[in-house]
Nucleic acid binder design. Structure first.
Lengths: 230, 230
DNA sequence: ACAAAAGTGTTGGATGTACACCCATGA
DNA sequence: TCATGGGTGTACATCCAACACTTTTGT
């Protein structure tokens, strides 16, 4: 790469790969961690298999912008928490061409989809019950689950899986599902209230026949104090 | 992307980017966290500036293989701990072409270089004293430092910055440098020995005029138990 | 009055922190 | 014998885990 000519001459050879992004978008459904899938077109080599939402990165967008765009255009999801997960560059991961994919993890709360904007068929499946997905997408989901499980322990990331206002029982259920064990209600409440990241909204929610629960929200003004639940 | 023709016709347009990798290789020098830099060629647009070690990803290699290759070919470094850091895809990060870089963090112990294999001029600089680097490499280094600082708290990653055998004082110094505060010697030793990841090699190291220190090594057989130093 | 989830305190054990002196060695 | 880093124990405070019953509501 010493002269400009050399660069230009070889440029076509160096541009051998297509860039893509895949988004592992999680959401809690009936206390199960669920992932957003989209149906591949019936003419693709994975004809009819389910895949993550994603697609090509365009020349004038960053990987993150591309992930946002695909989430919105394909699934009608906008404005959710998102973080870069890992870049998958195995040579044969797409049998047709070399495709390098920058994967993202996204976390949504209830009912995040505006289906009028969704261009492809999507569905949510519990992560414990996934079929064989297209490409290496099972592997990508696994990496995302590991990341989410580990971050729940030392960050307040759980908030992105909940609506704006939620009960302490809702929050506890998210923790319990993600770490896979039950927690003591009294200890959980004391700890989560002690670290001072929740605000009592003074609202309550009645459901059915039980005593109404008070609703809390996360105080995003405070510095991200760690929560050491178990 | 419905027909094969459409794919082939547009493929050249979709291959707009060059893929590269950049490696943030850390090492402790005189109790300072230091990073490996390489000199850019004097004909590059960053003529003479220092940059991370890295380069293009080739058609037949993964990002990780490419990072390994560049570390070896350019800096003569082989067989070090390595983990994927982040993928940088900002549109203007290389002023000449669109270059998407998959960055890695590498951790080396003392004197990891075989300089007979190093093809370019390199040096190690303390991270607290870096000049303006080429491209967005200052930003990449910052991400790597943040990652390392945070992982030191809940993993045993410190081991990769030390030689095979080391004293407890060596290990404590790595922790102290990375977290930026001093630790109590007795508490540090008790905790690190309690978690049962170190093996007493029965060797000792004398240096200068002091009492010899016993050398330990990490027991990689054990499951990666966490160390909660501070 | 009952069903169902909300909400609430205490105690014993474990863990973490603060702290200062003697030891082994080579010069 | 001195200078240097190596190595050791205890007491107090704090944090964490285990544990069960009362409250509020709608039917």
């Amino acid at each position: 790469m010493d002269s400009k000519n050399k660069i230009n001459n070889s440029l076509e050879n160096l541009r051998f790969a297509v860039l893509a992004t895949d988004v592992v978008c999680f959401r809690m459904i009936n206390n199960q961690l669920s992932v957003l899938l989209s149906k591949t077109s019936s003419t693709s080599i994975f004809s009819g298999k389910w895949a993550l939402v994603g697609g090509l990165i365009l020349e004038k967008e960053t990987a993150e912008q591309s992930a946002e765009r695909h989430l919105l255009e394909k699934a009608g999801i906008n404005n959710v928490y998102k973080e870069q997960l890992y870049t998958f560059s195995d040579i044969g991961r797409d049998p047709r061409n070399r495709v390098v994919s920058v994967a993202y993890m996204a976390l949504a709360s209830n009912d995040p989809q505006d289906l009028t904007k969704a261009k492809v068929e999507t569905k949510w499946l519990p992560v414990n019950d996934l079929p064989v997905l297209a490409y290496d997408h099972n592997q990508i989901v696994k990496v995302a689950i590991d990341r989410l499980r580990s971050k729940i322990g030392y960050t307040n990331i759980a908030q992105y899986l909940l609506p704006e206002e939620f009960t302490l029982s809702d929050l506890q259920a998210v923790y319990e599902t993600l770490i896979g064990e039950t927690l003591d209600k009294r200890n959980f409440r004391r700890k989560i209230l002690d670290v001072d990241i929740l605000i009592d909204t003074k609202h309550t929610r009645k459901q059915g026949v039980m005593r109404p629960a008070t609703l809390y929200k996360f105080s995003n003004s405070k510095k991200p104090k760690l929560v050491n639940i178990l």
